[in-house]
Simulated scan of single mutants.
Amino acid sequence: MSRNRPPERPETAPGLHAERVGRHTDGRLIVDGVTLSLCPGETVGLLGPNGSGKSTLLRLLSGVLTASTGVVTLDGRPLPAVGRRATARRVATVEQHTHTQTELTVHDVVALGRIPHRRTWSPASDSDARAVTAALERTGMTDRAEQSWHTLSGGERQRAQIARALAQEPRELLLDEPTNHLDIQHQLDLLDLVVSLPVTTVIALHDLNLAAMYCDRLLVLRAGSTVAEGSPAEVLTPSLIEEVYGVRTEVTHHPGHPVIRFLRQATGTPTRA
């Protein structure tokens, strides 16, 4: 279930923020003037159809991509001034697809999260070992530590990637559609884990009901621009969903969050999302 929504952020609060950021790629405008301010400890869901700019916005927030316009700041400093290594000590990312041809154990994968904290070619320190152990424990992957990455199920791989991100000891965690290709039980298990973490989280999701259940706040994108921002109850209305996704819905309010039922286009019969 979603945690209580945090209080409004003071303007001077530290953290990760995007101010009217835009990104052009190959002459196309992918993200257009998006502003996002994060409150410590909250879970923010990014919603929008395919191609709406969710993944690009996450890469801008992580510093992997540089904004064409606007600025992303960390504790008030633009990310280029903070530097990639210093940013990686604070901001961890979990990509939608992660592949490797190298034979790695789960422990090896999680230990990659310590790279921003180590000098080049330096051996792992005691603090590195403690961080990896704690990340494995937090994600329930301790008994898989010596198992080959290639033998893991989809849900286990996602947990290992979250453990790798936690080994960075971040304050901000960015996840790009981490529930894709997982069955319902693994989706719920994964999101239960994510919202239990002591970090500020931005997570791109397709499932509107999961977003309503687990996110404190939602930012909805369409064609790279912000369409709506607010609590799930404020944002997930039939009119907004039809405007953004082109489908009709019925929205009821379960205690704590809205529940979306999609209407079959041919018959108007409601079906659970």
Rank of each mutant, 00 (worst) to 15 (best):
A160I: 09
L219N: 06
T105P: 00
S37Q: 12
T133R: 14
V106W: 01
E172F: 09
G230H: 00
W149T: 00
V44W: 05
P40S: 03
G230R: 03
V251W: 04
L210V: 05
G76D: 05
L210F: 01
P116N: 10
Y214L: 15
A163T: 09
R118W: 14
A13G: 01
V199L: 09
R164Y: 02
L58N: 05
P40L: 03
E95Y: 02
H117K: 11
E137H: 13
S231A: 10
Q147G: 07
V195N: 04
V109R: 00
P80I: 14
A228G: 00
V244A: 01
R114K: 05
R119D: 10
L112K: 03
P116T: 08
L47P: 04
H97M: 11
E234I: 04
L29R: 15
S52E: 07
L65K: 06
D108G: 00
A81R: 15
G22R: 11
S153V: 12
M141T: 02
V64H: 11
S68M: 05
L191K: 15
T139D: 09
L46Q: 08
I203V: 15
S153M: 05
P178F: 12
R222H: 14
L191Y: 06
G33W: 05
Q147W: 02
A212F: 01
A223K: 14
V64P: 02
E169F: 03
A167T: 00
R119V: 06
L38I: 02
G83D: 09
T102R: 15
A124Q: 04
A86D: 12
V227W: 02
D128I: 11
L74T: 09
L182N: 13
A81L: 14
P123K: 09
V71M: 02
P232L: 06
P7G: 13
R164Q: 08
G224T: 14
E42V: 02
G53H: 11
E146V: 11
